[in-house]
Amino acid sequence: MRPLVRTAALTGYVELSRSLGIDPQALMKRVGLDTAALAVQDRWISGTAAVQLLELSAAASRHEDFGLLLAELRRFSNLGPISLVVREEPDVRSALGMLLRHEHMYNELLHTRLSEGDGLATLKVDLLLGETMPSRQATELVVAAFHRILRGFLSPRWQPLSVWFRHSAPADPATHRRLFGSSVEFGREYDAIVLYADELDAPNAMADPLLRTYARQYFDAIAVPRDTTVADRVRELIEVLLPTGRCSVEQIARSLGVDRRTVHRQLEASGETFSSLLNTTRTQLAEQMVANPRRSLTEISDLLGFSSLSAFSRWFGGQFGCSARQWRTRAERALPVDEG
Results as ranks from 00 to 15, higher is better:
Leu127Gln: 04
Leu127Phe: 03
Leu127Asp: 01
Leu127Gly: 05
Leu128Lys: 15
Leu129Lys: 04
Leu129Tyr: 09
Glu131Gln: 10
Glu131Met: 15
Met133Gly: 02
Met133Ala: 06
Ser135Pro: 10
Ser135Gln: 12
Ala138Met: 12
Ala138Pro: 02
Thr139Gln: 02
Thr139Cys: 01
Thr139Glu: 00
Thr139Asn: 02
Val142Gly: 03
Val142Ser: 04
Val143Ser: 07
Ala144Gln: 13
Ala144Ile: 05
Ala144Cys: 07
Ala145Cys: 03
Ala145Pro: 00
Phe146Lys: 15
Phe146Ala: 11
Phe146Tyr: 08
Phe146His: 07
His147Leu: 12
Arg148Gly: 02
Arg148Gln: 07
Ile149Thr: 15
Leu150Glu: 01
Leu150Arg: 00
Arg151Ser: 09
Gly152Ala: 12
Gly152Cys: 07
Gly152Thr: 02
Leu154Asp: 08
Pro156Gly: 06
Arg157Tyr: 06
Arg157Met: 09
Arg157Gln: 08
Arg157Gly: 06
Trp158Lys: 01
Trp158Ile: 05
Gln159Trp: 00
Gln159Leu: 12
Pro160Tyr: 00
Pro160Met: 00
Pro160Ile: 01
Pro160Phe: 01
Leu161Glu: 05
Ser162Trp: 06
Trp164Thr: 14
Phe165Val: 00
Phe165Asp: 03
Phe165His: 10
Arg166Glu: 07
His167Val: 10
His167Ile: 03
Ser168Cys: 15
Ser168Tyr: 02
Pro170Phe: 03
Pro170His: 12
Asp172Gly: 03
Pro173Trp: 02
Pro173Phe: 13
Pro173Ser: 14
Pro173Val: 06
Ala174Asp: 03
Thr175Val: 09
Thr175Tyr: 04
Arg177Pro: 04
Arg177Cys: 06
Arg178Lys: 13
Arg178Val: 03
Leu179Tyr: 01
Leu179Thr: 13
Phe180Ile: 05
Gly181Arg: 13
Gly181Thr: 13
Gly181Trp: 08
Ser182Asn: 13
Ser182Trp: 02
Glu185Ala: 10
Glu185Val: 10
Glu185Tyr: 15
Phe186Gly: 00
Arg188Lys: 09
Glu189Asp: 06
Glu189Trp: 11
Tyr190Thr: 12
Tyr190Glu: 12
Tyr190Met: 06
Tyr190Asn: 14
Asp191Phe: 11
Ala192Lys: 06
Ile193His: 14
Val194Cys: 08
Leu195Met: 14
Tyr196Ser: 13
Tyr196Ile: 07
Ala197His: 08
Ala197Gly: 13
Ala197Cys: 10
Asp198Gly: 08
Asp198Leu: 09
Glu199Phe: 04
Glu199Pro: 02
Asp201Asn: 11
Asp201Val: 14
Pro203Gln: 11
Pro203Thr: 07
Pro203Leu: 09
Asn204His: 01
Asn204Thr: 05
Ala205Thr: 00
Ala205Leu: 10
